[in-house]
Design a protein around this nucleic acid. Structure first.
Lengths: 144, 144
DNA sequence: TTTATAATTTAGCCTTGGCTTAGTTTATAC
DNA sequence: GTATAAACTAAGCCAAGGCTAAATTATAAA
């Protein structure tokens, strides 16, 4: 039972941080997927991005326009999508986090399916400190 | 290095699930905070909800109107806010998840500050299965 | 009891990220 | 080499959730 309240400005700062993380989530998910598509298929097509993100093509198209505006991707009309260096860097960072969270969940006994689902949402809310703690536990488990 | 892609429809389903979780996040954060304010202050005022959520009063007011429309809270104009049974139930569930994630992070050695920050974002993306795994580890640690 | 201040609401604006429908371009198949 | 299909874009709608500025109501102080 909670019978005290945290400091006002600290609590506000935490909520603000979570909201900021949300704003970058779509970007991270898109660049990570685009990078995967390029490495597996040789290119990233809108149709594949949309179907894998589970959205319609116009929705994916609009999001990609924003990513291009913000400097994460490049593309010519009707052509496949490329990552800028910034986009590639973000994709790498994002995939790394995603992978650590996924492996961590497996390590503590979560099923593969649940680990896949949960890591997709959790990866965006895990600080470097928590990531470090996760890595340590993975390492310890591998050493056995 | 990822050199394979997951099944299309399963990947799409996971992203869709995360997006759905996002839609309920604000609701969960608000009802949890309102419940805390009521238990500590005796009532939940808009001014306190707004300052603790880190948003302006009009933003909080609009969100509360939505929560009322959706049956989570009740309030008369210019009066403090009450939770419906549905709101209270969601608050309890939400606080429970929040608390388990927070305690889990502490258990694996994350600092109190980082645990507070991360649990705020993570609580909305943790499945029952993962929550169970977290609880098991907390229990094991307490037994020592 | 009036007045000043604080709390709340209203109105209006913006961005994101969904959608559908319709049009255009590119690729494919015959 | 043209017709059809597939991919993509354009236009327009919606809800959520931010904001500011202005109006209203409630509360506190003189």
């Amino acid at each position: 039972m909670v019978r005290t309240l945290p400091n006002v400005s600290e609590q506000a700062a935490r909520f603000t941080l979570v909201r900021e993380a949300h704003k970058t989530e779509a970007t991270e998910d898109y660049v990570e997927l685009i990078d995967d598509l390029i490495s597996v298929n040789g290119e990233a097509r809108l149709v594949d991005i949309a179907s894998r993100m589970g959205v319609t093509q116009p929705t994916a198209s609009k999001t990609l326009a924003r990513l291009q505006r913000d400097g994460y991707v490049n593309s010519e009309p009707y052509r496949s999508i490329f990552l800028t260096q910034m986009g590639k860097d973000l994709a790498d960072e994002s995939r790394f986090k995603h992978e650590v969270v996924f492996q961590f969940l497996l390590t503590i006994g979560v099923s593969k399916e649940a680990a896949k689902r949960d890591s997709e949402g959790m990866e965006h809310h895990v600080s470097d400190e928590t990531l470090k703690a996760f890595k340590k536990i993975i390492r310890k488990h591998q050493a056995r």
